[in-house]
Nucleic acid binder design. Structure first.
Lengths: 356, 356
DNA sequence: TCGACTTTTGTAATCGATTACATCTTGCGA
DNA sequence: TCGCAAGATGTAATCGATTACAAAAGTCGA
């Protein structure tokens, strides 16, 4: 099978265009980057030469000379997580608009992969960094801050005075989740955790506990199942739940996936949702609207989060950062759907409130 | 609030290291890229200087000189689609291993966004291109081929002698889907389409029709609902299905999302799955294992697809392409789960076969 | 110790743009 | 028409690495 060769295009340099137009390379460069600076006649001459030769500047040479790469590194724990994918979309929207490209750093939940992206930052392949990780990646010797590049933390906060955080109000939302369940009359709670070492999980659990206290309960009134941010964590929690004699009736899951896994598993054992147990998730992924019953959950403004994070980063890159832009905390929306309901229990005290 | 400045790191150039080690820049460069070429003593001297100065080569300068960017552009129709996200993971695995970076081109289902990535290719910001689009992006004037860069089509084939295709055997799988349904005794079929203009959809529908014929049926024996690769398409198909007097009993959806949307909607109207209608999906996304009932579907080897595509691209970039590597067609796996079953209809002819 | 040959290292050109500075044009008032 | 300022364009340095070629150092046998 004979194939055409794919490398046959001769590369046109700025000098070729200059020769074609009968001007110097400096003039060509000016026409392309500072339009007002050249006479109309020369401008047209050059543009015609550009058009005819099909010239496109070699961006590597531009980067070297201008010391701007027009690329941003986005480091995410796992790309197949729909939450991060959606945030990335928001980031992409904002950056593309400003002419920036995205280099992705997918850790795939393996921390050993982060070293590569530290080196990438240190070798100046990007102008700025967006971290969705909640921590600062390092390569054994040095961490990303040493690149001297602007960094913005998004989704998960990083406690560092030099790094702005663009996050959601997780803790408040988790507190509200408990209050909502309590308002429906629930008195025994369950908490399905995410990855315990992650900042996000710590924030959410903290909010959950605040909610427990605020509603007048104590640590004796809830059970906590550990896991990670995946479906199977919910399944495992359900297994444990099913063996309990005195089951909780109000379950809060730190992400929608585990909420969905939980519901799936308990329903297999004829536990009714929400009659026997109410479940509330977190994230508001699209699937959550296609489960049976549809999942009550807090919707994160993911796309907005991505845009806002990228916007802050661009301001840093351009040195247009104003103090009031520094930290952004976006609110969440409670989507009241069908996996939560009033307690139908003998000791139900009719405390139902319609909203919180 | 006073913040530390983030740009304070002085940049170390190769000349600094050379001075520190008392050698020339050429020697430093050789130590770093051709280890065997310098004497041990000089080598150690240089390495010590590198270590002490924390030198990392400026990759932009390297790119300019060597004319290799070590980056690959990956253009995908939509990043939040779990299918593409998973493929991207495979691509990432393979490329990272070889030291390549990924620049993502997310079209977000809007074709006008492709121009940007054509320019990116033409300005030589990458060494190769992976297209998950099924077509060759253009910017109004020129298309990506004119970059002269190696291109590989993945997921969706592109008919062009210069472009290798790394795809799955969609058509065969779709044919098998119909045969499977027919084997369960179904005689009236439904087809829920994906985006009609996409190659993927055309392949799948083609396979579906082949299956219909192979099983001895005609175009009178199926109904086709048009849509795109999203949940709501399934919901819309269900609405149509529900109004029919003589409903099909064997439904094939061109993607899992629309299968799930369909099932969700018909169950709301007390249509039983699989007793009243069997549904088979396509893709094998993770969520398909958490629906009720769990979805019967064809699992695409997505991760493998990504790796294989990246592997072919790397071979092209390195000029190691052998003709037998050119086209790759990976098989799919039928996951027999709970949304398909034998027809419980009066005219059921007991044709059930356990596998196909 | 000398010379021929090999190995190691250095010098300077190069990749392809941008841009500081120098030089040449143009426009305009006297 | 001349002179001078403002505007347009050209020359060449520069960004920071790699690498062809030249030069120096080392090796070894006679």
């Amino acid at each position: 099978m004979s194939r055409k060769r794919w490398r046959s295009v001769k590369e046109i340099r700025i000098a070729d265009v200059a020769r074609l137009a009968g001007v110097s390379t400096a003039t060509v460069s000016r026409v392309l980057s500072e339009p007002g600076k050249v006479r109309q006649k020369t401008h047209d001459l050059v543009m015609e030469a550009v058009r005819r030769s099909g010239y496109i500047p070699n961006s590597t040479a531009q980067k070297l000379r201008t010391r701007r790469t027009m690329n941003v590194l986005v480091v995410a724990p796992r790309l197949t997580n729909p939450v991060f994918a959606e945030v990335l979309r928001g980031v992409d929207d904002e950056l593309t608009q400003s002419g920036y490209g995205i280099i992705i750093g997918n850790l795939d939940n393996r921390r050993e992969r982060e070293a590569r992206y530290v080196d990438l930052a240190l070798s100046r392949q990007v102008d700025g960094i967006l971290l969705l990780t909640g921590y600062i990646p390092e390569n054994g010797t040095r961490d990303m801050r040493e690149s001297g590049l602007p960094i913005v933390a998004i989704c998960a906060a990083i406690e560092d005075d030099t790094i702005p955080n663009v996050v959601v109000q997780d803790r408040e939302a988790c507190r509200r989740a408990v209050e909502y369940l309590a308002g429906l009359g629930h008195r025994r709670f369950g908490y399905i955790s995410g990855t315990p070492s992650s900042i996000i999980e710590r924030e959410r659990f903290q909010g959950f506990r605040e909610g427990i206290e605020a509603a007048g309960f104590s640590h004796n009134d809830y059970v906590r199942w550990e896991g990670t941010f995946v479906f199977s964590t919910g399944v495992a929690a359900a297994e444990s739940f099913l063996t309990m004699k005195d089951r909780p009736t109000g379950i809060f899951a730190a992400c929608d996936e585990s909420a969905i896994g939980f519901i799936k598993r308990v329903r297999e054992e004829r536990v009714r949702v929400p009659q026997d147990v109410s479940v509330i998730g977190f994230d508001g992924i699209e699937f959550a609207d296609y489960t049976e019953p549809t999942l009550t959950t807090f919707r994160q403004p993911l796309h907005e989060l991505g845009r806002a994070g990228a916007d802050v980063l661009l301001k840093l890159i351009r040195n247009q950062m104003k103090p009031e832009d520094w930290d952004v905390r976006l609110p969440l929306t409670l989507l009241e759907r069908d996996t939560t309901g009033p307690v139908l229990h003998k000791d139900y005290k009719s405390l139902r409130r319609s909203t919180i």
